[in-house]
Computed example of a mutant assay.
Amino acid sequence: MLTDTHTHLYYETDEEKLTLLMQRCLDNQVTRLFLPNVDIASIAQVDSLVNKYPDHCFAMAGLHPCEVREDYEEVLDQICESIVDRQIYAIGEIGIDLHWDKTTLEIQKTAFREQINWAKDLDLPIVIHCREAFDEIFEVLDAEKDEKLRGIFHCFTGNLEQANRAIALGFYLGIGGVVTYKKSGLDEVLKDVLLSRIVLETDSPYLAPVPFRGKPNESSYLVYIAEKLSEIYQVSVEEIAKVTTANSVSIFNI
């Protein structure tokens, strides 16, 4: 049994295509999918997929840092209000992204802190989006560190020092398709990271693993990421599935 701890499979709006995407997941033993929302509109999309596949799909709630704009306070209020009537398993995806727009850094930080506090109040993990912003992310996390702060560094692509710092703060590393890319260097980093601190993800429809790199990603491709980790850790794919799924259960409590 494989667990995709981060997928936007709900972006597919064609019902027939979505059914086939889910069927390919189940055929490949990808039976647990965690769905982060990114804005207000995606809440309904996430909930729709969860309602269709309640035994396989699990919701998160959060505001993606790239969606933090001038009206972010109002948007956060609406997302927070939605949580009252929904079963969610994490606050995410949240964080800081300085790839596209550095001018919003301060409000990104503010939104990040507020959502961390949601997670603490609800005793939930957070799922962190970090792009070109490790220093800024760690600045916030160091200030917020306590026994309730925990979660996943989604799409981790950092170096060993950053990996160890994240783990020391109580986080797991979300490993996706990038680990299959020849020049990523992530495989070398993971050789010094315990498998007990790793979870798998696809971030579909983005970052498809080899041999599908450059094409739309899907959660069924998680098997290729598991196979790469099997090479790195020199254990069977079954062991990778067992340990990483157990890690996901520990994080999400389901």
Rank of each mutant, 00 (worst) to 15 (best):
G151M: 08
Y10S: 08
D135C: 01
A61K: 09
S42M: 02
D14V: 09
A44F: 02
D77I: 05
V38C: 13
S184T: 01
V84P: 00
I128D: 06
F34M: 10
S230G: 04
I167R: 07
K242P: 04
L9Q: 07
V179Q: 01
S204I: 02
K191I: 06
E114W: 03
L49H: 09
A143V: 01
N159E: 09
G62N: 04
I128P: 03
G176Y: 04
G214C: 11
H8A: 03
D101M: 12
Y181K: 11
Q87Y: 02
E188L: 13
L173F: 11
L26P: 00
E147Y: 12
E106L: 14
Y72I: 10
N28T: 00
T244N: 09
E147H: 13
L2S: 00
E67K: 03
S48A: 12
D85G: 00
L173E: 07
H129D: 02
L122D: 06
F156V: 01
K52F: 09
R86K: 14
N164M: 12
L9M: 10
F171Y: 08
E73H: 13
G176C: 08
R24G: 05
R32N: 13
R69Y: 13
L194H: 14
D121T: 14
W118Y: 05
L141G: 02
V223I: 15
C80I: 09
V235R: 00
D121K: 15
A119N: 08
R69Q: 15
L49N: 09
P209Y: 13
N247A: 08
R150Q: 11
R165F: 01
D146T: 00
E161N: 15
Q108I: 11
T104F: 12
A208T: 04
T31K: 13
E12P: 04
V84C: 08
A133C: 13
I254N: 09
A226C: 10
V199W: 07
N164H: 15
L20T: 12
V210P: 04
S248N: 10
T7N: 02
P125S: 12
K120Y: 11
P36H: 03
W100T: 09
H99G: 05
C66H: 11
V189L: 07
T244L: 09
I88R: 06
T180L: 02
G170Y: 06
T245H: 13
R213M: 10
L35W: 01
G170Q: 05
N28V: 00
E132K: 14
L195I: 15
I152L: 08
H64D: 07
L124A: 10
V237H: 05
L190P: 04
T19R: 15
T3W: 10
K242D: 15
E147P: 00
N51W: 00
E73P: 01
T180P: 01
A208W: 01
Y224F: 15
Y11V: 12
E114C: 04
G95L: 02
H56N: 14
F252C: 02
A226G: 11
E15I: 05
M22L: 15
L26T: 06
A241G: 07
L105C: 10
V140Y: 09
N28K: 11
V140M: 10
G92H: 02
E188D: 14
I94F: 05
I91L: 07
H99E: 12
R32Y: 14
